[in-house]
């Protein structure tokens, strides 16, 4: 296609604009990475931009030796692994019957579940219910109250409905019951959609925050995000450490920068893999809305 001069100018302008904006997406992280490897004096005198000044590993040594942080990391890994598994299991178990024509209650149950996307319970009754169930101050309060995402369930159901029905007949002739049909045939064919919702769930669990704020009073059970928040908001959590150690190779500025990077690294590592699936998922879900 031939472009006019005006269009060429626009193209150039557009490229520059997009590149500049896109770099603002990553620049803050790179800046904080640089701060986390800089000396506290350099960090506080505003000398650090994208390259560390007075390079030091002191901040990271301190962070990586922080048991409280690792404990929170462990909680988050646990809820991410166990939570993602349980969420996917129950999402699939719910979506499968709802995709079957022979399941008589398919329509009313589907309606009841989809309605919860519009009519959301207010925070307080939800909080009181979870407390009544006895999940207060339990690690399971981070998993069970949000076990099934209706959005993800609808994605899986739509996918199941588009699987050709010839397979069912073949399976039935082989004497397959519905459990085997689901786990041995349907799930094998649904790997892309399972990867998509698995990643949605995993990112959700990794970023778990609100449920922890609501249900966990015991700091030993706090997930990573909650621990980060405590680091950011109470200067004592970090400043006190400074004094005990008598070490001035790091301060709250560099520590905060390093904890932000610490919490972001796992996401950045899985990101290329993540990207392969999420775009598809975002579109799949939206079509049904």
């Amino acid at each position: 296609m031939k472009l006019s001069i005006g269009e060429k100018v626009f193209q150039a302008f557009n490229y520059i604009l997009l590149i500049v904006l896109a770099s603002t997406m990553i620049a803050p992280l790179l800046h904080l990475l640089a701060v986390s490897f800089s000396s506290p004096i350099a960090a506080d005198t505003k000398e650090v931009f994208l390259i560390p000044v007075d390079f030091t590993l002191a901040t990271w040594k301190h962070i990586l030796q922080n048991e409280v942080l690792w404990r929170a990391f462990g909680v988050t890994v646990f809820i991410t692994v166990v939570g993602t598994f349980l969420s996917m299991l129950f999402t699939v178990l719910t979506a499968f019957p709802l995709s079957r024509k022979e399941f008589m209650l398919r329509k009313p149950i589907m309606l009841i579940m989809v309605l919860t996307m519009i009519f959301n319970a207010p925070m307080i009754p939800f909080f009181l219910t979870v407390r009544e169930v006895g999940l207060m101050d339990s690690i399971w309060s981070l998993i069970i109250p949000g076990l099934i995402s209706t959005f993800n369930m609808v994605i899986v159901r739509t996918f199941f409905m588009n699987i050709p029905k010839d397979l069912d007949d073949a399976a039935r002739i082989d004497g397959c019951n519905e459990f085997r049909l689901l786990f041995q045939i349907y799930l094998q064919l649904s790997k892309p959609v399972l990867a998509t919702i698995g990643l949605f769930y995993a990112v959700g669990y990794w970023n778990t925050f609100k449920t922890a704020v609501l249900f966990l009073r015991n700091p030993d059970l706090w997930p990573l995000q909650m621990r980060l928040r405590a680091f950011f908001t109470s200067e004592e959590e970090m400043a006190a450490v400074d004094l005990i150690m008598g070490d001035f190779d790091f301060n709250t500025t560099t520590l905060k920068a390093a904890t932000i990077i610490f919490a972001t690294i796992p996401i950045v590592i899985v990101y290329p893999y993540l990207q392969k699936y999420f775009v598809k998922g975002a579109v799949l879900g939206s079509l049904k809305e």
């Binding site: 178990l93 399941f103 149950i109 919860t116 009519f119 009754p125 069970i144 099934i148 519905e178």
Partner: peptide, 29 residues
């Protein structure tokens, strides 16, 4: 005939009742 399907969806139904509809009804407070 299809008891397996009903069994499968049972945990899902319990989940929606306990964590979606009971809190919704609990709004009466």
């Amino acid at each position: 005939k299809h008891w397996v399907l009903y069994l499968m969806i049972l945990p899902g139904i319990i989940y929606y009742i306990v964590f979606k509809y009971i809190p919704l009804l609990g709004s009466v407070i």
